[in-house]
Design a binder for these strands. Structure first.
Ligand SMILES: [Mn+2]
Ligand SMILES: [Mn+2]
Ligand SMILES: [Zn+2]
Ligand SMILES: [Zn+2]
Lengths: 135, 135
DNA sequence: TTTCACTTTAGAATAATTATAAACTAGTTT
DNA sequence: AAACTAGTTTATAATTATTCTAAAGTGAAA
């Protein structure tokens, strides 16, 4: 991903490209593989990586703006903390409770043969599969 | 479910059958259908139903003891609160984000045809499917 | 260079949960 | 029965994750 894409992500999230936001966006989006994180883990990694420390509120605000713009998704998984995901396409997860880590599963690596119909007046928005792991 | 079963549930959870615990256990387990709840919702319902109010800490402690003993399961779902489930068998859920409600899906109403193998050194503990609903 | 909307930040507030410690309860021993 | 004791309940404090607030900072445009 090029720098121009970072700026696009920021603009499309209605965020001006400030120093802090560019740093967060580059950290999140300039990578090959999916990145799963909590705000806490992201904060630690950013602190380690860069000299200047970004306020936690700025990280929350920026992450939420990216989520609202569809550049991040939120994964519901065991625990109290919110997990975010740079993979915003429809996909599934392994969840390793030992390490509290998520691993992507490509949407077409899981095929569901039979599925119940939605309750009266409701429609199916999406289907999420979690494969919980043990050692 | 008879009263004797309530006492069994308590004993097998290493809980003496005190007035408060029996009241919680009866409320949770003396019912036909699955009951999904948060500690907050359970507390409200218990307060409404009975004259004596049970301390929140007692509800937390009792619910956690039931969970540890396998009489309740915890469902991971969107939001900050923990959801508990009187259905401890392997099953799936509809999740209605409008109402923040869970609805059971019988395990054999979902058939998965293709599933990826677990990462190196890990095994599959279980598979949970969430069907998110919209109006 | 002044303006002004937007931004960052530290710290306060809130919400869910867990911990603490004092008062209470009910079996068991004397 | 009275004393003892292990376990229990409870109010309240502490903790954790998140959101809010308001003051100070920033920078493009007038
Ligand atoms: Mn959350
Ligand atoms: Mn939880
Ligand atoms: Zn993912
Ligand atoms: Zn259920």
């Amino acid at each position: 991903m090029k720098k121009i894409d970072i700026l696009k992500k920021l603009r499309s999230s209605n965020l001006r490209p400030t120093k802090q936001r560019v740093e967060i966006a580059k950290f999140l989006f300039e990578r090959e593989k999916t990145f799963h994180f909590t705000v806490e883990s992201l904060n630690k990694l950013l602190t380690k990586k860069s000299t200047s420390k970004i306020a936690l509120a700025t990280i929350y605000n920026t992450v939420h703006a990216f989520k609202a713009a569809g550049h991040l998704s939120e994964v519901e998984v065991r625990g109290n903390k919110s997990y975010f995901d740079t993979n915003v396409s429809n996909h599934h997860h392994f969840y390793d409770s030992e390490t509290a880590e998520l691993i992507d599963i490509n949407a077409n690596d899981i095929v569901i043969q039979k599925i119940p119909k939605a309750p009266n007046g409701k429609k199916i928005k999406n289907v999420e599969v979690f494969i919980n792991l043990k050692n």
